[in-house]
Amino acid sequence: MLNITSIKKGLVIDHIRPGMGLKIFEYLKLGKADFTVALIMNATSNKMGRKDIIKIEDVIDVDFAMLGFLDANITVNVIEDEVITEKINLSLPVRVQDIIRCKNPRCITTVERDITHKFVLLDKEKGIYKCEYCDHIYSWEG
């Protein structure tokens, strides 16, 4: 079993869908961090079988809405003095901006410069969004 030391103060992003950890790591720009970070991939999990985990030895600003969009099953643990002081369960945000791109090849976002890519949540259960410009459906399943 791989051991990663616990952190004194910071965040543990837990229950990340396997394979999504690296994407979140990149989204949070942790590759450029000057504090201790750990990305654990394919850790064993009673609940999920396998999961990814990110540990961050610092208090950073995280856009939980966007994190929820990347993976709504994530739990964020806030750590103070090596103790979990807060557990944040994420959910899908109603709106997302500049995280994903519309897959409709005829959408205005494919041709217009400097346009904000905007999506609105259509179905919370199925995780379905639609492009605010062309109404094209977006879901993680493609």
Partner: peptide, 27 residues
């Protein structure tokens, strides 16, 4: 009229006079 879908929705943000969509792609 614009071939790209959602063009008028984008356009109204920059248009101080009434903009009428005369057709945007297949939308």
């Amino acid at each position: 009229r614009h071939p790209n879908e959602g063009a008028p929705k984008h356009g109204i943000q920059y248009c101080p006079v009434p903009l009428i969509n005369g057709g945007d792609g297949g939308h």
